[in-house]
């Protein structure tokens, strides 16, 4: 994606200090990792943390941004119904389910969300490279 002034005016995804710390530790142990926003059953609303290269990234995957040097993706169909909200990567208590790497001992990554303001939404719409979904 390219932006007129080189930077997106509004972040689609951010991370809390706790998530940034956890990501730094995971990267120390595992090397490069990605976060992929999951959907569906059980813990489907959580970001799944995977070693880079584990999941084949395809044409239908939207790169939302990067937190702590870690790319964050979402399925474009899910993006279409989530795009009015900012995703905030954080850390919660307990082991992750599914195949996600933990965010430290007995911790897992979680997604908090915030609905964008009208101003932010207008800024996002003005951005070049807005995923077309």
């Amino acid at each position: 994606m390219t932006y007129e002034d080189g930077q997106p005016p509004v972040d689609r995804v951010t991370a809390t200090p706790a998530a940034l710390d956890a990501l730094a530790r995971v990267r120390e142990q595992r090397g490069a990792v990605i976060l992929y926003q999951s959907g569906g059953c059980c813990d489907g609303s959580l970001p799944v943390c995977l070693e880079q290269g584990d999941l084949r990234i395809g044409g239908g995957d939207v790169l939302l941004g990067s937190v702590g040097g870690c790319p964050v993706y979402i399925d474009d169909r899910q993006y279409a119904v989530w795009k009015h909200t900012q995703l905030i990567i954080d850390v919660g208590a307990g082991e992750p389910e599914g195949f996600s790497l933990p965010a430290g001992d007995d911790r897992h990554f979680i997604t908090r969300s915030r609905v964008f303001s009208a101003t932010e939404l207008a800024a996002l719409r003005a951005m070049k490279g807005e995923p077309s979904s």
């Binding site: 999951s38 959907g39 569906g40 489907g44 799944v48 599914g98 790497l101 933990p102």
Partner: peptide, 27 residues
């Protein structure tokens, strides 16, 4: 934990069929 065990099981050459219930990324 699924992050360690799940992948090892799902990629094992000794497994002939996988059935999974859970979220979309692990699916």
């Amino acid at each position: 934990p699924g992050g360690e065990i799940g992948k090892a099981l799902a990629t094992s050459r000794r497994i002939a069929k996988i059935a999974f219930t859970g979220e979309t990324v692990t699916g």
